[in-house]
Write a protein that binds this DNA or RNA. Structure first.
Lengths: 215, 215
DNA sequence: CCACAACCTGACCAGACGGTCAACGAAAAT
DNA sequence: ATTTTCGTTGACCGTCTGGTCAGGTTGTGG
Protein backbone atom coordinates (compact mmCIF):
# COMPACT_ATOMS: atom_id res chain seq x y z
CA UNK A 1 0.00 0.00 0.00
CA UNK A 2 2.69 2.56 0.80
CA UNK A 3 4.05 4.39 -2.19
CA UNK A 4 0.85 4.07 -4.14
CA UNK A 5 0.15 7.04 -6.31
CA UNK A 6 -2.99 9.03 -6.03
CA UNK A 7 -5.85 8.07 -8.31
CA UNK A 8 -6.13 10.53 -11.17
CA UNK A 9 -8.90 13.03 -10.82
CA UNK A 10 -10.07 15.05 -13.82
CA UNK A 11 -10.89 18.71 -13.65
CA UNK A 12 -14.32 19.62 -12.22
CA UNK A 13 -16.17 21.34 -15.04
CA UNK A 14 -19.94 21.71 -14.70
CA UNK A 15 -22.06 21.00 -11.65
CA UNK A 16 -23.30 17.60 -12.77
CA UNK A 17 -19.81 16.67 -13.91
CA UNK A 18 -18.43 17.41 -10.45
CA UNK A 19 -20.69 14.87 -8.84
CA UNK A 20 -20.06 12.18 -11.44
CA UNK A 21 -16.32 12.75 -11.49
CA UNK A 22 -15.92 12.77 -7.71
CA UNK A 23 -18.04 9.67 -7.25
CA UNK A 24 -15.96 7.93 -9.89
CA UNK A 25 -12.68 8.90 -8.22
CA UNK A 26 -13.97 7.80 -4.81
CA UNK A 27 -15.26 4.46 -6.11
CA UNK A 28 -12.00 3.81 -7.95
CA UNK A 29 -9.94 4.56 -4.86
CA UNK A 30 -12.30 2.59 -2.64
CA UNK A 31 -12.09 -0.46 -4.87
CA UNK A 32 -8.33 -0.46 -4.57
CA UNK A 33 -8.23 0.14 -0.83
CA UNK A 34 -10.93 -2.40 -0.02
CA UNK A 35 -9.09 -4.96 -2.15
CA UNK A 36 -5.72 -4.34 -0.56
CA UNK A 37 -6.80 -3.97 3.06
CA UNK A 38 -10.17 -5.70 3.32
CA UNK A 39 -13.32 -4.02 4.61
CA UNK A 40 -12.13 -3.99 8.20
CA UNK A 41 -8.64 -2.85 7.35
CA UNK A 42 -9.69 -0.11 4.95
CA UNK A 43 -10.08 3.38 6.36
CA UNK A 44 -12.07 6.26 4.98
CA UNK A 45 -8.99 8.43 5.44
CA UNK A 46 -6.94 6.15 3.18
CA UNK A 47 -9.61 6.14 0.51
CA UNK A 48 -9.91 9.91 0.76
CA UNK A 49 -6.15 10.40 0.37
CA UNK A 50 -6.06 8.14 -2.65
CA UNK A 51 -9.00 9.93 -4.24
CA UNK A 52 -7.39 13.30 -3.46
CA UNK A 53 -10.29 14.55 -1.37
CA UNK A 54 -10.76 15.45 2.29
CA UNK A 55 -12.36 12.70 4.30
CA UNK A 56 -15.43 14.78 5.09
CA UNK A 57 -16.10 15.05 1.39
CA UNK A 58 -16.42 11.30 1.10
CA UNK A 59 -19.28 11.35 3.56
CA UNK A 60 -20.95 14.00 1.47
CA UNK A 61 -21.22 11.54 -1.43
CA UNK A 62 -21.47 8.28 0.51
CA UNK A 63 -23.18 8.37 3.88
CA UNK A 64 -21.31 5.47 5.43
CA UNK A 65 -18.36 3.21 4.80
CA UNK A 66 -20.75 0.34 4.24
CA UNK A 67 -22.69 2.29 1.59
CA UNK A 68 -19.47 2.91 -0.28
CA UNK A 69 -18.47 -0.73 0.03
CA UNK A 70 -21.85 -1.90 -1.24
CA UNK A 71 -21.50 0.25 -4.34
CA UNK A 72 -18.06 -1.20 -5.06
CA UNK A 73 -19.22 -4.80 -4.75
CA UNK A 74 -22.26 -4.20 -6.91
CA UNK A 75 -20.05 -2.70 -9.58
CA UNK A 76 -18.03 -5.89 -9.97
CA UNK A 77 -21.09 -8.04 -10.07
CA UNK A 78 -22.45 -6.00 -12.97
CA UNK A 79 -19.23 -6.41 -14.92
CA UNK A 80 -19.29 -10.16 -14.48
CA UNK A 81 -22.91 -10.39 -15.51
CA UNK A 82 -22.09 -8.54 -18.70
CA UNK A 83 -19.29 -10.97 -19.47
CA UNK A 84 -21.72 -13.81 -19.01
CA UNK A 85 -23.39 -12.91 -22.25
CA UNK A 86 -20.45 -14.65 -23.95
CA UNK A 87 -22.24 -17.80 -23.00
CA UNK A 88 -25.37 -17.07 -24.92
CA UNK A 89 -25.95 -17.35 -28.63
CA UNK A 90 -23.05 -19.77 -28.87
CA UNK A 91 -23.59 -22.84 -31.06
CA UNK A 92 -21.59 -25.07 -28.73
CA UNK A 93 -19.19 -25.32 -25.80
CA UNK A 94 -16.07 -24.55 -27.80
CA UNK A 95 -17.38 -21.13 -28.74
CA UNK A 96 -19.51 -20.47 -25.62
CA UNK A 97 -17.19 -21.64 -22.88
CA UNK A 98 -14.14 -20.53 -24.84
CA UNK A 99 -15.49 -17.01 -25.08
CA UNK A 100 -16.52 -17.06 -21.43
CA UNK A 101 -12.99 -18.03 -20.36
CA UNK A 102 -11.55 -15.27 -22.53
CA UNK A 103 -13.94 -12.73 -21.06
CA UNK A 104 -13.38 -13.76 -17.44
CA UNK A 105 -9.60 -13.85 -17.90
CA UNK A 106 -9.69 -10.36 -19.42
CA UNK A 107 -11.66 -9.10 -16.44
CA UNK A 108 -9.16 -10.69 -14.07
CA UNK A 109 -6.51 -8.64 -15.78
CA UNK A 110 -8.39 -5.36 -16.06
CA UNK A 111 -10.33 -5.48 -12.79
CA UNK A 112 -8.15 -7.37 -10.31
CA UNK A 113 -9.20 -5.16 -7.40
CA UNK A 114 -12.88 -5.73 -7.97
CA UNK A 115 -12.39 -9.46 -8.17
CA UNK A 116 -10.58 -9.42 -4.84
CA UNK A 117 -13.28 -7.37 -3.19
CA UNK A 118 -15.88 -9.84 -4.38
CA UNK A 119 -13.82 -12.81 -3.20
CA UNK A 120 -13.33 -11.20 0.18
CA UNK A 121 -17.02 -10.47 0.49
CA UNK A 122 -18.01 -14.06 -0.31
CA UNK A 123 -15.31 -15.48 1.99
CA UNK A 124 -16.70 -13.45 4.86
CA UNK A 125 -20.14 -14.97 4.33
CA UNK A 126 -21.49 -12.40 1.88
CA UNK A 127 -22.98 -10.18 4.60
CA UNK A 128 -23.72 -7.43 2.10
CA UNK A 129 -24.63 -9.20 -1.12
CA UNK A 130 -26.40 -12.33 0.10
CA UNK A 131 -29.57 -11.29 -1.71
CA UNK A 132 -27.65 -11.07 -5.00
CA UNK A 133 -26.43 -14.63 -4.53
CA UNK A 134 -29.91 -15.92 -3.84
CA UNK A 135 -31.61 -14.17 -6.72
CA UNK A 136 -29.53 -12.94 -9.65
CA UNK A 137 -26.64 -15.37 -9.32
CA UNK A 138 -28.86 -18.37 -8.68
CA UNK A 139 -31.03 -17.59 -11.68
CA UNK A 140 -28.02 -16.99 -13.91
CA UNK A 141 -26.41 -20.22 -12.75
CA UNK A 142 -29.50 -22.29 -13.40
CA UNK A 143 -29.81 -20.76 -16.86
CA UNK A 144 -26.23 -21.70 -17.81
CA UNK A 145 -26.64 -25.17 -16.34
CA UNK A 146 -29.54 -25.65 -18.73
CA UNK A 147 -27.42 -24.51 -21.66
CA UNK A 148 -24.57 -26.84 -20.73
CA UNK A 149 -26.98 -29.73 -20.23
CA UNK A 150 -28.41 -29.11 -23.67
CA UNK A 151 -24.91 -29.28 -25.18
CA UNK A 152 -24.39 -32.57 -23.37
CA UNK A 153 -27.67 -33.94 -24.63
CA UNK A 154 -26.72 -32.90 -28.15
CA UNK A 155 -23.46 -34.86 -27.82
CA UNK A 156 -21.32 -31.74 -28.14
CA UNK A 157 -19.39 -32.48 -24.94
CA UNK A 158 -18.91 -35.16 -22.32
CA UNK A 159 -21.58 -35.59 -19.62
CA UNK A 160 -19.86 -33.63 -16.85
CA UNK A 161 -21.76 -32.08 -13.94
CA UNK A 162 -22.50 -28.55 -15.22
CA UNK A 163 -22.42 -27.12 -11.72
CA UNK A 164 -18.87 -28.28 -11.03
CA UNK A 165 -17.82 -27.13 -14.45
CA UNK A 166 -19.02 -23.63 -13.60
CA UNK A 167 -17.16 -23.74 -10.27
CA UNK A 168 -13.99 -24.80 -12.07
CA UNK A 169 -14.42 -21.94 -14.54
CA UNK A 170 -15.02 -19.33 -11.84
CA UNK A 171 -12.21 -20.61 -9.66
CA UNK A 172 -9.61 -20.83 -12.38
CA UNK A 173 -10.29 -17.54 -14.13
CA UNK A 174 -10.63 -15.51 -10.93
CA UNK A 175 -7.49 -17.12 -9.52
CA UNK A 176 -5.44 -15.03 -11.91
CA UNK A 177 -6.80 -11.91 -10.21
CA UNK A 178 -7.28 -13.00 -6.60
CA UNK A 179 -3.95 -14.83 -6.37
CA UNK A 180 -2.21 -12.52 -8.80
CA UNK A 181 0.40 -11.68 -6.22
CA UNK A 182 1.31 -15.33 -5.75
CA UNK A 183 1.44 -15.84 -9.51
CA UNK A 184 3.66 -12.79 -9.87
CA UNK A 185 5.98 -14.07 -7.15
CA UNK A 186 6.27 -17.40 -8.93
CA UNK A 187 6.96 -15.46 -12.13
CA UNK A 188 10.25 -14.12 -10.75
CA UNK A 189 8.39 -11.22 -9.14
CA UNK A 190 7.37 -9.77 -12.48
CA UNK A 191 3.77 -9.25 -13.65
CA UNK A 192 2.62 -11.43 -16.51
CA UNK A 193 3.44 -9.94 -19.91
CA UNK A 194 0.94 -9.65 -22.75
CA UNK A 195 2.41 -12.81 -24.20
CA UNK A 196 2.12 -14.65 -20.89
CA UNK A 197 -1.50 -13.58 -20.53
CA UNK A 198 -2.26 -14.94 -23.97
CA UNK A 199 -0.50 -18.18 -23.04
CA UNK A 200 -2.50 -18.35 -19.78
CA UNK A 201 -5.80 -18.00 -21.60
CA UNK A 202 -4.75 -20.58 -24.17
CA UNK A 203 -3.66 -23.02 -21.46
CA UNK A 204 -6.86 -22.68 -19.50
CA UNK A 205 -9.04 -23.03 -22.57
CA UNK A 206 -6.99 -25.99 -23.77
CA UNK A 207 -7.27 -27.90 -20.50
CA UNK A 208 -10.90 -27.05 -19.85
CA UNK A 209 -12.23 -27.72 -23.33
CA UNK A 210 -10.38 -31.02 -23.54
CA UNK A 211 -11.53 -31.81 -20.01
CA UNK A 212 -15.16 -31.61 -21.01
CA UNK A 213 -14.53 -33.49 -24.24
CA UNK A 214 -15.44 -30.58 -26.46
CA UNK A 215 -12.35 -30.83 -28.64
CA UNK B 1 -20.40 -14.44 13.25
CA UNK B 2 -23.21 -13.84 15.74
CA UNK B 3 -24.54 -16.97 17.36
CA UNK B 4 -21.25 -18.78 17.02
CA UNK B 5 -20.59 -21.11 19.87
CA UNK B 6 -17.47 -20.91 21.95
CA UNK B 7 -14.59 -23.12 20.90
CA UNK B 8 -14.32 -26.13 23.18
CA UNK B 9 -11.55 -25.93 25.74
CA UNK B 10 -10.40 -29.06 27.54
CA UNK B 11 -9.61 -29.18 31.24
CA UNK B 12 -6.23 -27.77 32.31
CA UNK B 13 -4.30 -30.66 33.84
CA UNK B 14 -0.56 -30.20 34.34
CA UNK B 15 1.48 -27.07 33.84
CA UNK B 16 2.77 -27.95 30.38
CA UNK B 17 -0.70 -29.10 29.35
CA UNK B 18 -2.14 -25.74 30.28
CA UNK B 19 0.13 -23.96 27.88
CA UNK B 20 -0.46 -26.37 25.01
CA UNK B 21 -4.20 -26.49 25.53
CA UNK B 22 -4.61 -22.71 25.79
CA UNK B 23 -2.46 -22.07 22.74
CA UNK B 24 -4.50 -24.61 20.81
CA UNK B 25 -7.81 -23.03 21.84
CA UNK B 26 -6.54 -19.56 20.94
CA UNK B 27 -5.21 -20.64 17.56
CA UNK B 28 -8.43 -22.45 16.74
CA UNK B 29 -10.52 -19.43 17.66
CA UNK B 30 -8.16 -17.07 15.86
CA UNK B 31 -8.30 -19.11 12.66
CA UNK B 32 -12.06 -18.85 12.63
CA UNK B 33 -12.21 -15.14 13.47
CA UNK B 34 -9.48 -14.16 11.01
CA UNK B 35 -11.25 -16.16 8.30
CA UNK B 36 -14.64 -14.61 8.96
CA UNK B 37 -13.60 -11.02 9.58
CA UNK B 38 -10.20 -10.63 7.91
CA UNK B 39 -7.11 -9.41 9.72
CA UNK B 40 -8.32 -5.85 9.97
CA UNK B 41 -11.83 -6.80 10.99
CA UNK B 42 -10.80 -9.33 13.58
CA UNK B 43 -10.46 -8.13 17.17
CA UNK B 44 -8.49 -9.67 20.00
CA UNK B 45 -11.60 -9.37 22.16
CA UNK B 46 -13.61 -11.49 19.72
CA UNK B 47 -10.92 -14.15 19.57
CA UNK B 48 -10.67 -14.13 23.35
CA UNK B 49 -14.42 -14.57 23.77
CA UNK B 50 -14.47 -17.46 21.32
CA UNK B 51 -11.53 -19.12 23.06
CA UNK B 52 -13.18 -18.58 26.43
CA UNK B 53 -10.33 -16.53 27.86
CA UNK B 54 -9.90 -12.92 29.00
CA UNK B 55 -8.27 -10.75 26.41
CA UNK B 56 -5.22 -10.08 28.56
CA UNK B 57 -4.53 -13.79 28.63
CA UNK B 58 -4.18 -13.84 24.84
CA UNK B 59 -1.34 -11.37 25.07
CA UNK B 60 0.34 -13.62 27.61
CA UNK B 61 0.63 -16.37 24.98
CA UNK B 62 0.91 -14.21 21.84
CA UNK B 63 2.60 -10.85 22.18
CA UNK B 64 0.76 -9.11 19.36
CA UNK B 65 -2.18 -9.63 17.02
CA UNK B 66 0.27 -10.00 14.17
CA UNK B 67 2.20 -12.74 15.97
CA UNK B 68 -1.01 -14.68 16.43
CA UNK B 69 -1.96 -14.15 12.81
CA UNK B 70 1.44 -15.29 11.61
CA UNK B 71 1.10 -18.54 13.55
CA UNK B 72 -2.31 -19.19 11.99
CA UNK B 73 -1.11 -18.63 8.45
CA UNK B 74 1.96 -20.81 8.95
CA UNK B 75 -0.27 -23.60 10.24
CA UNK B 76 -2.21 -23.81 7.00
CA UNK B 77 0.87 -23.71 4.89
CA UNK B 78 2.25 -26.73 6.76
CA UNK B 79 -0.94 -28.67 6.16
CA UNK B 80 -0.82 -27.97 2.44
CA UNK B 81 2.82 -28.94 2.22
CA UNK B 82 2.02 -32.27 3.85
CA UNK B 83 -0.73 -32.89 1.31
CA UNK B 84 1.75 -32.21 -1.45
CA UNK B 85 3.45 -35.51 -0.75
CA UNK B 86 0.56 -37.12 -2.65
CA UNK B 87 2.39 -35.92 -5.69
CA UNK B 88 5.54 -37.82 -5.04
CA UNK B 89 6.20 -41.51 -5.57
CA UNK B 90 3.33 -41.62 -8.04
CA UNK B 91 3.96 -43.59 -11.25
CA UNK B 92 1.95 -41.19 -13.37
CA UNK B 93 -0.48 -38.25 -13.46
CA UNK B 94 -3.58 -40.35 -12.87
CA UNK B 95 -2.31 -41.48 -9.49
CA UNK B 96 -0.25 -38.40 -8.59
CA UNK B 97 -2.59 -35.62 -9.61
CA UNK B 98 -5.63 -37.68 -8.70
CA UNK B 99 -4.34 -38.14 -5.16
CA UNK B 100 -3.36 -34.48 -4.95
CA UNK B 101 -6.88 -33.41 -5.91
CA UNK B 102 -8.34 -35.78 -3.32
CA UNK B 103 -6.02 -34.46 -0.64
CA UNK B 104 -6.62 -30.78 -1.42
CA UNK B 105 -10.39 -31.28 -1.62
CA UNK B 106 -10.34 -33.03 1.75
CA UNK B 107 -8.42 -30.13 3.25
CA UNK B 108 -10.93 -27.68 1.79
CA UNK B 109 -13.60 -29.55 3.67
CA UNK B 110 -11.76 -30.03 6.96
CA UNK B 111 -9.88 -26.73 7.10
CA UNK B 112 -12.05 -24.16 5.35
CA UNK B 113 -11.09 -21.38 7.76
CA UNK B 114 -7.39 -21.87 7.21
CA UNK B 115 -7.82 -21.82 3.46
CA UNK B 116 -9.68 -18.52 3.70
CA UNK B 117 -7.02 -16.97 5.89
CA UNK B 118 -4.37 -17.96 3.38
CA UNK B 119 -6.40 -16.62 0.48
CA UNK B 120 -6.97 -13.35 2.30
CA UNK B 121 -3.28 -13.04 3.09
CA UNK B 122 -2.25 -13.58 -0.53
CA UNK B 123 -4.95 -11.25 -1.83
CA UNK B 124 -3.64 -8.48 0.41
CA UNK B 125 -0.17 -8.88 -1.09
CA UNK B 126 1.18 -11.47 1.35
CA UNK B 127 2.61 -8.87 3.76
CA UNK B 128 3.34 -11.53 6.34
CA UNK B 129 4.31 -14.64 4.37
CA UNK B 130 6.11 -13.17 1.37
CA UNK B 131 9.30 -15.01 2.33
CA UNK B 132 7.43 -18.33 2.29
CA UNK B 133 6.25 -17.63 -1.24
CA UNK B 134 9.73 -16.79 -2.43
CA UNK B 135 11.44 -19.78 -0.84
CA UNK B 136 9.40 -22.81 0.15
CA UNK B 137 6.53 -22.35 -2.29
CA UNK B 138 8.79 -21.48 -5.20
CA UNK B 139 10.99 -24.50 -4.60
CA UNK B 140 8.01 -26.80 -4.19
CA UNK B 141 6.44 -25.46 -7.37
CA UNK B 142 9.58 -25.92 -9.42
CA UNK B 143 9.90 -29.46 -8.12
CA UNK B 144 6.36 -30.40 -9.18
CA UNK B 145 6.81 -28.70 -12.53
CA UNK B 146 9.77 -31.00 -13.13
CA UNK B 147 7.66 -34.04 -12.23
CA UNK B 148 4.84 -33.00 -14.53
CA UNK B 149 7.27 -32.26 -17.35
CA UNK B 150 8.75 -35.74 -16.94
CA UNK B 151 5.30 -37.26 -17.27
CA UNK B 152 4.78 -35.24 -20.43
CA UNK B 153 8.13 -36.36 -21.83
CA UNK B 154 7.19 -39.95 -21.04
CA UNK B 155 3.99 -39.53 -23.01
CA UNK B 156 1.79 -40.11 -19.98
CA UNK B 157 -0.16 -36.90 -20.53
CA UNK B 158 -0.68 -34.11 -23.02
CA UNK B 159 1.96 -31.35 -23.24
CA UNK B 160 0.17 -28.73 -21.13
CA UNK B 161 1.99 -25.92 -19.36
CA UNK B 162 2.71 -27.41 -15.90
CA UNK B 163 2.53 -24.02 -14.24
CA UNK B 164 -1.00 -23.31 -15.42
CA UNK B 165 -2.01 -26.83 -14.51
CA UNK B 166 -0.88 -26.17 -10.94
CA UNK B 167 -2.78 -22.89 -10.86
CA UNK B 168 -5.90 -24.65 -12.09
CA UNK B 169 -5.49 -27.31 -9.41
CA UNK B 170 -4.97 -24.79 -6.61
CA UNK B 171 -7.78 -22.56 -7.77
CA UNK B 172 -10.34 -25.30 -8.22
CA UNK B 173 -9.69 -27.25 -5.04
CA UNK B 174 -9.44 -24.20 -2.81
CA UNK B 175 -12.56 -22.73 -4.37
CA UNK B 176 -14.62 -25.29 -2.46
CA UNK B 177 -13.32 -23.78 0.79
CA UNK B 178 -12.89 -20.10 -0.05
CA UNK B 179 -16.19 -19.80 -1.93
CA UNK B 180 -17.94 -22.41 0.20
CA UNK B 181 -20.59 -19.91 1.17
CA UNK B 182 -21.45 -19.22 -2.46
CA UNK B 183 -21.53 -22.94 -3.23
CA UNK B 184 -23.78 -23.53 -0.25
CA UNK B 185 -26.12 -20.77 -1.36
CA UNK B 186 -26.34 -22.33 -4.82
CA UNK B 187 -27.01 -25.68 -3.11
CA UNK B 188 -30.34 -24.43 -1.72
CA UNK B 189 -28.56 -22.98 1.28
CA UNK B 190 -27.50 -26.39 2.54
CA UNK B 191 -23.88 -27.54 3.04
CA UNK B 192 -22.66 -30.24 0.68
CA UNK B 193 -23.44 -33.73 1.93
CA UNK B 194 -20.90 -36.56 2.07
CA UNK B 195 -22.32 -37.82 -1.21
CA UNK B 196 -22.04 -34.39 -2.81
CA UNK B 197 -18.44 -34.04 -1.67
CA UNK B 198 -17.60 -37.38 -3.25
CA UNK B 199 -19.32 -36.24 -6.43
CA UNK B 200 -17.38 -32.96 -6.36
CA UNK B 201 -14.06 -34.75 -6.06
CA UNK B 202 -15.02 -37.15 -8.84
CA UNK B 203 -16.13 -34.30 -11.12
CA UNK B 204 -12.96 -32.32 -10.59
CA UNK B 205 -10.72 -35.33 -11.11
CA UNK B 206 -12.70 -36.35 -14.17
CA UNK B 207 -12.44 -32.95 -15.84
CA UNK B 208 -8.83 -32.29 -14.91
CA UNK B 209 -7.44 -35.72 -15.79
CA UNK B 210 -9.24 -35.72 -19.13
CA UNK B 211 -8.14 -32.12 -19.63
CA UNK B 212 -4.50 -33.10 -19.46
CA UNK B 213 -5.04 -36.18 -21.58
CA UNK B 214 -4.15 -38.60 -18.81
CA UNK B 215 -7.20 -40.81 -19.25
C1' DC C 1 -26.81 41.02 -9.44
C1' DC C 2 -29.01 38.27 -6.23
C1' DA C 3 -30.60 34.29 -3.89
C1' DC C 4 -30.63 29.73 -3.53
C1' DA C 5 -28.74 25.24 -3.79
C1' DA C 6 -24.96 22.36 -4.26
C1' DC C 7 -20.48 21.52 -2.86
C1' DC C 8 -16.52 21.73 0.35
C1' DT C 9 -13.80 21.07 4.67
C1' DG C 10 -11.19 21.85 9.28
C1' DA C 11 -12.24 20.78 13.64
C1' DC C 12 -14.32 17.93 16.58
C1' DC C 13 -16.45 13.70 19.18
C1' DA C 14 -17.74 9.25 21.17
C1' DG C 15 -16.50 4.70 20.89
C1' DA C 16 -13.53 0.91 20.00
C1' DC C 17 -9.10 -0.91 19.42
C1' DG C 18 -4.38 -3.16 20.56
C1' DG C 19 -1.61 -3.39 24.09
C1' DT C 20 0.19 -2.72 29.17
C1' DC C 21 0.61 -3.52 33.95
C1' DA C 22 0.37 -4.37 38.75
C1' DA C 23 -1.50 -7.47 41.74
C1' DC C 24 -2.81 -12.01 42.68
C1' DG C 25 -3.32 -17.35 42.74
C1' DA C 26 -1.58 -21.82 42.02
C1' DA C 27 1.70 -25.21 41.09
C1' DA C 28 6.45 -26.83 41.29
C1' DA C 29 11.03 -26.74 42.82
C1' DT C 30 14.08 -26.23 46.93
C1' DA D 1 7.46 -24.71 54.54
C1' DT D 2 9.23 -21.37 51.66
C1' DT D 3 10.62 -19.51 47.58
C1' DT D 4 10.19 -19.10 42.75
C1' DT D 5 8.13 -19.61 38.51
C1' DC D 6 4.16 -19.70 35.67
C1' DG D 7 -0.42 -18.53 34.73
C1' DT D 8 -4.41 -15.15 35.36
C1' DT D 9 -6.99 -10.93 35.08
C1' DG D 10 -9.54 -6.28 35.82
C1' DA D 11 -8.49 -1.89 35.05
C1' DC D 12 -6.34 1.25 32.44
C1' DC D 13 -4.10 4.13 28.41
C1' DG D 14 -2.84 6.31 24.02
C1' DT D 15 -4.31 6.07 19.48
C1' DC D 16 -7.12 5.71 15.71
C1' DT D 17 -11.69 5.24 13.45
C1' DG D 18 -16.23 6.35 11.41
C1' DG D 19 -19.05 9.87 11.47
C1' DT D 20 -20.83 14.88 12.45
C1' DC D 21 -21.35 19.68 11.89
C1' DA D 22 -21.12 24.58 11.42
C1' DG D 23 -19.55 27.73 8.48
C1' DG D 24 -17.48 28.64 4.25
C1' DT D 25 -17.10 28.71 -1.13
C1' DT D 26 -18.69 28.06 -5.78
C1' DG D 27 -21.71 27.58 -9.54
C1' DT D 28 -26.45 28.47 -11.49
C1' DG D 29 -31.17 29.93 -12.46
C1' DG D 30 -34.02 33.97 -12.23
Amino acid sequence: MPGDAQISRLKPGRRTDIRRENERAILEAAEKVFAEAGFGGATMQLIADMAGLPKANLHYYFATKEDLYRRVVSGIFEIWLDAASSFDNAPGPVEGIGAYIDAKMDISRTHPYGSKVWASEVMHGAPVIQDYLETTLRDWTNGRIAVIQRWIDEGKMQPVDPRHLLYLLWATTQHYADFGHQIQTLNDGKPLTDKQWRASKASVKDMVLRGIGAV
